[in-house]
Simulated assay, not measured.
Amino acid sequence: MAKIFCIANQKGGVGKTTTTVNLAAGLAKIGQRVLLVDLDPQGNATMGSGVDKRALQQTIYDVLLGQAGVRDAAVLSEPGGYQVLGANRELAGAEVELVELEQRERRLKNALAEVGGEYDFVLIDCPPSLSLLTLNGLCAAHGVIVPMQCEYFALEGLTDLVNTIKQVHANLNPDLQIIGLLRVMFDPRITLQQQVSEQLKEHFGDKVFDTVIPRNVRLAEAPSYGLPGVVFDANAKGSQAFVEFAQEMVGRIKRM
């Protein structure tokens, strides 16, 4: 059965989508069967996977409202080698429509249950706000991967996220846990980043992934070409780090 992970952080601009897309591509590169679920109405993970969100016949919106199954709506990211359950602006309206539906927080969980045996990993790119969409992601997931920059304000955002995860764990999804914290956009020349990195390791121990994703221009350029960074420039330090992270994830899952 697939291991389902949310990539979440309630602070915006921390590289959630970059992490989701490149982890998906990295996992596919090492032979894993991957489904990327884009739960953000902006559809950035969809576009970053080389899928035109405007041309999609069916999206995660249709799946959440019960108008399509995951098999019907998922499309192949040809450059990335993984499946994408895409999103576009339609998804913004799902918030209102979900309110009146039964099991509104578990719509995604129920849909993914039908295809659990067809994938090794399902990665869910969550919007930064705590909304019904994010709740659907957290209810469907076995765990949360938290990308974060090693900066002071990132620690405050992390506290909020940990509290949210505790509430969802207590009330909606007893399987939910933090799988690990991923340090992203890391620049070892900045003393503060080194200090925050050490604080994270002291507080969270082995919950902090060994892999560190460096600040990397090639990763930032890749989305404008509709490509995961891992594919856009496989030799870039950031791309190589994401492949290492994919290998670390596979190893960690085997130990769980």
Rank of each mutant, 00 (worst) to 15 (best):
G13A: 06
R189I: 02
I4T: 05
V231E: 09
L181A: 05
V51L: 11
R71P: 01
S129P: 07
V208L: 11
Q195V: 15
A111M: 10
F209T: 05
L23D: 01
L98F: 13
D175F: 09
G48Q: 14
A25T: 08
F153K: 08
N235Q: 15
V231R: 12
L181K: 08
G13I: 01
R183E: 10
D125K: 02
A113K: 12
A8S: 14
L132S: 06
V231H: 13
A92R: 14
L182D: 03
D175E: 12
H142S: 05
L39S: 09
P223E: 06
L138F: 15
L39G: 01
G80L: 09
S77R: 10
Q199R: 15
A45I: 02
L192T: 10
L132G: 13
E114C: 02
R107L: 02
I190G: 03
L135W: 10
L132E: 00
E105N: 13
G116V: 07
L219K: 14
G137Q: 08
Q83D: 13
Q194S: 12
P128A: 01
T59H: 12
T59Y: 13
E102I: 02
G31P: 03
V63I: 11
V63N: 11
F245A: 10
T17S: 08
A241Q: 08
A222G: 12
E78I: 10
R33N: 06
Q67Y: 09
Q177K: 15
D233H: 08
S224Q: 12
P128T: 02
A24Q: 03
C150E: 05
F245Y: 14
P128G: 01
T159P: 00
E100D: 13
L108A: 06
M249A: 05
L56I: 09
Y119M: 03
I213E: 04
R215S: 06
S131K: 08
Q10S: 05
L35E: 00
L101H: 06
R33G: 01
G31C: 05
C139V: 13
E105K: 13
I145D: 03
T18L: 11
F186G: 03
G43Y: 12
K166T: 03
P79N: 04
Q67V: 04
Q199A: 12
R54K: 14
M256F: 14
E244P: 00
C139I: 00
Y82T: 04
V231P: 06
K109S: 06
L85V: 01
K29I: 00
Y225K: 14
L135I: 11
E78W: 10
P188Y: 04
A246F: 09
H142D: 14
V14F: 11
T59Q: 11
T18H: 02
N216D: 14
N171C: 03
G251S: 07
S197L: 09
V146D: 01
D175I: 00
L132M: 14
F209E: 02
A92P: 00
D233N: 15
G93T: 07
V243L: 05
V230T: 08
Q83W: 15
P128N: 04
N235M: 10
Y61D: 00
E244G: 10
D52E: 14
T164P: 07
S224G: 11
I179Y: 12
G13W: 07
C139E: 05
L36F: 08
D187W: 13
V37P: 01
D160F: 15
A2C: 09
D72W: 06
F232E: 03
K254W: 05
